[in-house]
């Protein structure tokens, strides 16, 4: 019995063992891997992905997708900057010259607005979440183009760059923000009635409804969270790169989904934890950084990422098979509490 529990525990925390394995492997292959520079870099490059993953996890646990978050990231940062930057080259702003703080608030509001609209279409108009957010992914990205006529916005103010570029001593603000986001996300999912009810919604919306939980309201709230965190990720990425380009964040959604899935968040809803998702983010960033450290061409990095997803899924399906094959039937349990049995009925 104890043995069984240990196996299940290892299976549930496999992501951290994988991470350890990958770290050891890279450390053996490259003596530069353990240099502080490199470790900070890994963390720094996981921040934007991490913030997106926190938001996405809320939506995935309710059994929905938010494919639009990478576009939300782009549009919110672009519009926020547009409000505060002067017209013409090289800033390409709107010439409104508003305070950077108003710009930051605007960024968050745009994220909320897109999240609200997603939730509205999905729960009120009963449209399919995959298609709705896919359409939003395209539309929101498309809206970015005419605003700056395709130009790159530069010279962002320092307030704007604080989240992405500043650091406290050796620790970048972005890393602190990501860790806080995961910690708060963890607390909400484990210890807030709201977070816990998301699992019921994802596990069985009808059962949630019958238990006095309004699944549609929870789904709308999850999209709001995803939207606003995508906007935060946009501010962070803008700060880090110092400029805003048309295709910022483009294609990130694949990495977001990969990190979530590797971290054990079920795409069918109802399963997964922030802790695992954090591991997923770190694993992906470590692989990316390690492979580039070894000067391996990018196509290998992409193949490796795809492979990792497949391996994670394989482990997950085998885990569920293992756990359900180890179920002790209760009629037998009464008589022989120690029997490790499987029932056929």
């Amino acid at each position: 019995m104890n043995n069984r529990k240990r196996i299940v525990w290892i299976l549930n925390n496999l992501i951290w063992f994988l991470l350890l394995l990958v770290v050891l492997l890279f450390a053996l292959l490259s003596d530069r891997f353990f240099m502080p520079m490199n470790l900070t870099n890994i963390l720094l490059h996981s921040t934007v992905l991490g913030i997106l993953v926190v938001g996405q996890s809320f939506v995935l646990i309710t059994g929905n997708f938010d494919l639009s978050s990478e576009s939300t990231l782009g549009l919110s940062a672009l519009l926020g900057a547009w409000l505060i930057l002067p017209k013409g080259a090289p800033t390409f702003g709107g010439g409104l010259l508003l305070s950077p703080y108003i710009g930051i608030v605007a960024i968050l509001l745009i994220g909320l607005a897109i999240g609200w609209f997603n939730g509205f279409l999905i729960t009120r108009l009963k449209m399919n979440n995959f298609i709705v957010t896919l359409a939003m992914l395209l539309m929101v990205r498309g809206v970015m183009m005419p605003i700056t006529a395709g130009n790159t916005m530069a010279r962002l103010p320092d307030e704007f760059k604080f989240l992405g570029a500043a650091s406290f001593g050796p620790i970048p603000v972005a890393v602190i923000a990501m860790v806080i986001a995961f910690a708060v996300g963890y607390i909400i999912l484990q210890f807030r009635p709201f977070g816990r009810s998301l699992y019921a919604v994802g596990g069985s919306p009808d059962a949630a409804l019958a238990a006095g939980i309004d699944p549609d309201r929870r789904i709308r709230q999850a999209y709001l969270i995803s939207g606003v965190l995508a906007a935060v990720a946009g501010l962070m990425l803008a700060g880090r790169s110092g400029v805003i380009v048309q295709n910022m964040g483009k294609g990130d959604i694949f990495e977001v989904m990969a990190a979530c899935v590797i971290g054990g968040i079920s795409l069918n809803g109802g399963r997964g934890s922030m802790f695992g998702a954090f591991g997923g983010v770190l694993l992906l960033s470590t692989i990316n950084s390690g492979l580039s450290l070894l000067r391996i061409s990018t196509f290998w990095i992409e193949i490796a990422s795809g492979l990792i997803i497949l391996i994670a899924m394989l482990i997950d399906s085998q885990k569920i098979r293992y756990i359900s094959s180890q179920v002790v039937p209760l009629t037998k349990l009464e008589k022989k509490p120690s029997a490790e049995a499987v029932s056929g009925d």
């Binding site: 009635p193 816990r196 699992y199 596990g203 069985s204 949630a208 019958a210 238990a211 939980i213 109802g270």
Partner: peptide, 27 residues
């Protein structure tokens, strides 16, 4: 209300026994 369709409306099958008991009284 105890629903007739236990699997669809009564329980959230994949979640633990404990969570299923307290889903409606988390507040």
């Amino acid at each position: 209300y105890l629903p007739r369709d236990r699997h669809g409306m009564g329980i959230v099958g994949m979640r633990p026994v404990g969570e299923n008991v307290t889903f409606s009284i988390l507040k």
